[in-house]
Design a protein around this nucleic acid. Sequence first.
DNA 1: ACAGGATGGTTCAAATTTGAACCTCACGCT
DNA 2: AGCGTGAGGTTCAAATTTGAACCATCCTGT
Lengths: 158, 158
Amino acid sequence: MDRPLDQPRWLDEREMAAWRGFVAASNLVARHVERQLKEDAGLSHTQYEILVQLSAAPDGALRMTDLADRLVTSKSGLTYQVTQLEKAGLVARRSCASDVRGVFAEITDEGWRTLRAAAPGHVAAVREALIDILTPEQLAAVADSLGTVSDHLRGSDG
Amino acid sequence: MDRPLDQPRWLDEREMAAWRGFVAASNLVARHVERQLKEDAGLSHTQYEILVQLSAAPDGALRMTDLADRLVTSKSGLTYQVTQLEKAGLVARRSCASDVRGVFAEITDEGWRTLRAAAPGHVAAVREALIDILTPEQLAAVADSLGTVSDHLRGSDG
DNA sequence: ACAGGATGGTTCAAATTTGAACCTCACGCT
DNA sequence: AGCGTGAGGTTCAAATTTGAACCATCCTGT
């Protein structure tokens, strides 16, 4: 909460290596995945993730807020992307019975087709950029560590 | 190189956990750091990183291309950000003696002051979001794994 | 010396992202 | 019922990002 009034605890060499590795890998992997998806399926990673989340949800539909929580975008960003997907016919908006304010995003048949077509290439890109690079032990460590980090930040930040 | 013609190798549960953790952590940590830096120092993370790279370089200056390689932005993105920093007086452009086309970005005194002022808060945010969350073992594993990933992608993608 | 192709940076328009302001509606309390 | 707060989404303007096109210069081989 408070900013330290005393000397900041600078990062030592190990810590710095972890931080730099994390930042570099984040950007590079994101770039890699983004490019593949855009070139081969005409989707951004965010759009792809929206389709994935919807496809995994019961009835293929989720409330906007739900969706915004699962992805990590701002509300307005989600509104924008869902609108794009709606224009493309991959997603439809539907109003919510129990709450007039609520909006469901629902994946369409065309959305399913697009997702099925895009998935193999995407998985290949993910393997190429991250999964197949690491040993099973490293993979387990990454899953464990970054899972912890995610949980922590989801809790505190919102 | 080739797209697989056979069945794609889908991710198993472990692999999926690693991938999801990676993506979520990337976004959440980026958000966290970005917000802190913007609020407390008026800098974007990219801008901060530019200052860091320049401050660590001999003469506090680097060629644009050098800089673009170290950060992970597009050339045009770097041009934009350096221009912003230049307007703010934190960085100056200088032409290159040995290559007329070349441009050096150089950190100014004001840039140094801004960087020094921003650093403690930034380090605290990095600790809060990532470093202090993990055990030393996890930290070592992350540094090792993501370092490998970065090296791999820097090599193949460019 | 010079054609041809790669490099270094910038410019441009288009797509995306962000946060703040806003509107409508839900809900707990009196 | 009626008020006040807050949640759910959208809208808006401003900032940023991207890739492609571009210009100027450098370098290689002949």
